[in-house]
């Protein structure tokens, strides 16, 4: 079982947190903080397994993480999961994100935390691995996106237009927002 999936950046800012066991918000933040402290002090050339922290798990639990550029992807798992298997799963997750966001970067995760959640829910469900085949996962996600597009149709167009305009108004946005979203939004306008 996977107990928690955490994504945070090099400074410990949470970008995604998914707990498959209930913790209240305070505890969640403490866990993130503790995990960050454990993980961040490790060099890049050391192994990717850690004995779990004090707050989450115990001796049966392990932290398995990968570090990509500015982000840490940490899975807290118990002994029923294969360590190398989870490492592969993290890779699948990140590659899926990469496909869905086209060259994923931290900003994508910041502004689309919900989308990341939806992608994750196609990989892992309730702490158990659901699907590991990337193509299947992407098909599922695309299907759902299509569904959303269909639903929003014309009624959502004005709102989206405004949000695009709002986005363009802020000069910093040019730096911040990921551009691929723009053409897509314009495409949506054609409805």
């Amino acid at each position: 079982m996977i107990k928690a999936i955490l994504v945070f950046n090099n400074h410990g800012k949470p970008r995604l947190s998914k707990f498959y066991q209930y913790f209240d918000e305070n505890l969640q933040q403490q866990i993130i903080k503790e995990t960050f402290q454990l993980v961040s002090k490790r060099d890049d050339n050391v192994c990717n397994f850690l004995e779990g922290g004090s707050l989450i798990g115990g001796s049966d639990y392990k932290l398995i993480y990968r570090h990509y550029a500015t982000l840490y992807f940490v899975f807290c798992v118990d002994s029923s999961e294969s360590e190398l298997g989870i490492l592969d799963l993290i890779q699948v997750f990140v590659e899926t994100l990469d496909k869905c966001f086209e060259n994923v970067c931290e900003l994508d995760l910041i502004f689309h935390a919900d989308a990341v959640h939806h992608i994750l829910s196609e990989l892992v469900m309730g702490g158990m691995v659901l699907q590991t085949n990337m193509n299947d996962i992407i098909t599922r996600i695309e299907d759902q996106n299509k569904l959303i597009k269909q639903e929003s149709g014309i009624s959502a167009a004005p709102a989206r237009a405004v949000s695009v305009v709002k986005s363009m108004n802020i000069p910093q946005q040019i730096k911040d927002i990921k551009l691929p979203d723009l053409p897509q939004a314009i495409k949506d306008l054609k409805f």
């Binding site: 502004f111 959502a156 004005p158 949000s163 709002k166």
Partner: peptide
């Protein structure tokens, strides 16, 4: 009515705005 509702909504803060606001 629906369209009107949507127009009202246009100027609400959406998730992206929230994230950006927090960052600013």
């Amino acid at each position: 009515k629906k369209v009107k509702g949507n127009f009202e909504r246009m100027f609400d803060k959406n998730l992206t705005d929230l994230v950006r606001g927090i960052r600013n």
